Amino acid sequence: MTDETHATTTIGVILAGGLARRMGGGDKPMRAIGGRPILDHVIARFAPQCDGVILNANGDPARFSAFGLPVVADSVADFPGPLAGVLAALDWTAHNRPGVRWVASVAGDCPFLPRDLLARLHEARAAQGAKLAVAASGGQSHPVIGLWSVALREELRHALVKEDIRKIDRWTARYPLATVSWPAEPVDPFFNANTVEDLAEAEKLATLAG
């Protein structure tokens, strides 16, 4: 392994902690598209880019056992939301893969993720000297789809516990941030299934996504 390869070794975390209120509750990533759970589509696109993938979810981890991923609950109590999931992933990586410096996060309800996600995030981060990187498409930033430095985990913990910061972009604004854009046509790679109507749309888009 070269120094550069080691420098970009990345653990992936799939954030699956949402309550799916607009779908009537339950786990959004377990809803089906094309006869397969959304989570299955996410793993298929994301895992080949990572040096290991974990799933951030609260509650009984057994419901995800079929996917064969470590399930990591939020490491800070009573802080629902994606930043808590990112912190859980940073903590897991620090304890289980101490040589790894980066964690990439994606949403568990994005079935069409780009296959060059990590490569482009790391390229932009390195080129711009940034500490973090996030994805964008169609003129919109997607802060849940991002690249995080394990070295910032205690700063993130402080922001969550002491400052009650919940919004991702409020926290990332403190650091040099690279934003990488992808085209939104013919399919937005960061399309996420939030509603029953979105599921129907995803069925149509699946044939275009490849």
Rank of each mutant, 00 (worst) to 15 (best):
T93S: 08
L83R: 05
D198E: 05
T179L: 05
A135G: 07
D164C: 12
L55P: 09
G17W: 00
P70D: 14
G108D: 02
G18D: 09
P98W: 08
E123K: 13
P143N: 08
D169W: 09
D3H: 11
D188S: 05
G59T: 07
P189K: 05
N56L: 10
D60S: 09
G138N: 05
F64T: 01
A130W: 00
L19H: 14
V144L: 12
A173W: 09
V134D: 06
S75M: 02
E185T: 14
G108S: 07
V196I: 12
D109C: 11
T172R: 07
G34F: 02
G99S: 12
L19Q: 13
S181L: 02
G85R: 07
S75I: 03
N96I: 06
S105F: 11
G108C: 08
G85V: 05
G146Y: 04
P114Y: 01
Q49M: 12
A184C: 02
I33E: 00
R22T: 08
V161Y: 01
G35L: 03
D164S: 15
M1H: 13
R125S: 08
I38A: 01
A206Y: 04
I33V: 15
G25F: 09
A135S: 14
V150S: 10
N194E: 11
L121G: 08
D91G: 00
C110Q: 15
D188W: 01
E203M: 01
R31K: 12
R120L: 11
P183A: 11
R153E: 05
A119C: 08
P61H: 09
F191R: 02
L147R: 01
